[in-house]
């Protein structure tokens, strides 16, 4: 017996696939298609094949790949953030170093200025002192000279007074006084003052 054509001859006791594209009559012998049990086995076979292939592709290829992409992105992001953090710290450090060197330079400049000022002041002070000492010395010398001259002048006055007195006595008495009595007289007048 020839094999019946499955497309045209339904196996005994079962319905065929409804219609094969023909328009159905509402009162057709066909059952509600989702409940036609003779199609179940074939549908399950195709479902198993299709879903098995899908599961294999997802489990072996797609999901590990997507997981990898997401993981890579997460690590990339965190490493980029770390890098940014590190760079920020570096920039902060550089800023602090700059501030510090600026402060140091300012301090040094202030120090130099202070030193110069102190040096100049000291120099001026020593100059002033030496000048003062010089002037004082000159003053003292002048005073000494003045004193000497005065004493000299005063000495000369005694001599002149003695000579004058001797001359007056000689004119009055005709006889020159001896030197000793003249000196005594002069001393008396000097003390009488």
């Amino acid at each position: 017996m020839a094999q019946p054509n499955p497309l045209t001859t339904p196996p005994p006791g079962t319905d065929t696939y409804a219609g094969k594209g023909e328009i159905l009559h509402p009162a057709a012998k066909h059952a509600f298609p989702p409940f036609e049990s003779h199609t179940f086995l074939a549908q399950l076979v195709w479902l198993a094949l299709a879903f098995g292939a899908l599961y294999y592709l997802m489990a072996k290829v797609a999901l590990p790949r997507i997981q990898g992409i997401l993981h890579d992105r997460a690590t990339r992001l965190s490493s980029d953030l770390d890098e940014a953090q590190r760079m920020k710290a570096e920039a902060d450090e550089a800023g602090a170093a700059y501030e510090k060197s600026l402060r140091d330079a300012q301090g040094k400049a202030r120090e130099i200025a202070q030193n110069t000022r102190n040096e100049l002041a000291a120099e001026a002070e020593t100059k002033r002192k030496s000048l003062e000492a010089e002037l004082n010395a000159k003053l003292a010398a002048s005073e000494a000279t003045l004193k000497g001259r005065t004493e000299e002048a005063m000495g000369n006055v005694r001599t002149i007074a003695g000579e004058t007195a001797a001359a007056i006595v000689e004119r009055l008495t005709g006889k020159a006084p001896d030197k000793a009595s003249l000196d005594r007289a002069l001393d008396r007048t000097a003390t009488a003052h």
Partner: peptide
């Protein structure tokens, strides 16, 4: 068996 296996 009696069930047709067809690529539907």
């Amino acid at each position: 068996g009696h069930q047709e296996i067809a690529f539907t």
